[in-house]
Design a protein around this nucleic acid. Structure first.
Lengths: 121, 121
DNA sequence: TGAACTATACAACAATTATTGAAATATAAA
DNA sequence: TTTATATTTCAATAATTGTTGTATAGTTCA
């Protein structure tokens, strides 16, 4: 998980509509839903939902497979888990005891200096 | 953690600059950094950093305290942990076995139906 | 008090993202 | 093959977000 992917995924979760779509797909995992079902469930125009589905698919947060004339969308729970792992490691960097049980988080890191590597991507 | 707060926090993490700021503050927890140190570290104009710090402070992702003529910013690791918890519960809803060890996640939920509550905020 | 310093507010503008209806593409079914 | 269905693409526009320089407000210290 690099910074670029992380920001793209956060962007995918940073709108009420996209978060609704994702939660809906999680609830319907692993079957997923086709585009029209999502539009209907959220009472939104198909074009608008399609716009958001495209962004979420591009980021990898959801997957799509063609099923005849339908497009079936599924939550990518593996990517979500990777993002949670990324956030956890970012959160614990520096002072793990502020986030978690110390013995669990202690593996993360131990320095708190101001490094030029602060600036890396 | 409600949906509105979650989307605001994701928005706070959904830019490279804001993610840099957050990671920098996490690395310097619990001391934090003053605004000028952040601008210098990231080589960005003070006004631009101030713009992003304001958004992050508003969402609660970071905290600010006045220190003489300085404004000291700190990562709010408690909020970050709450967001991770929210993501974890959203991710596991439906089919916990897809995210985690089943025995850990099994508490989350057990239905996979299409409910009108899908539409709630 | 007055000069230097820190940071934000403001204003102007650039760039990106969101929304909608109409048209196009592709599949399925009659 | 014609018609209906599902979804996306496109174009137009609206709305929001991001960036920068300048001005302002507040703090420190001589």
């Amino acid at each position: 998980m690099d910074k670029q992917l992380a920001t793209t995924l956060f962007e995918s979760l940073a709108s009420g509509i996209r978060l609704d779509i994702f939660r809906l797909l999680v609830k319907h995992a692993p079957t997923g839903l086709v585009a029209g079902e999502i539009s209907t469930a959220l009472a939104l125009p198909a074009t608008n939902v399609s716009f958001h589905l495209r962004a979420m698919t591009y980021s990898g947060l959801i997957n799509v497979t063609q099923e005849g004339r339908y497009q079936r969308y599924r939550a990518n729970l593996t990517v979500m888990q990777s993002l949670i792992d990324y956030m956890t490691s970012e959160c614990c960097t520096g002072r793990p005891e502020h986030c978690f049980d110390t013995e669990i988080a202690a593996v993360c890191c131990d320095d708190n200096k101001f490094l030029s590597s602060d600036l890396e991507a």
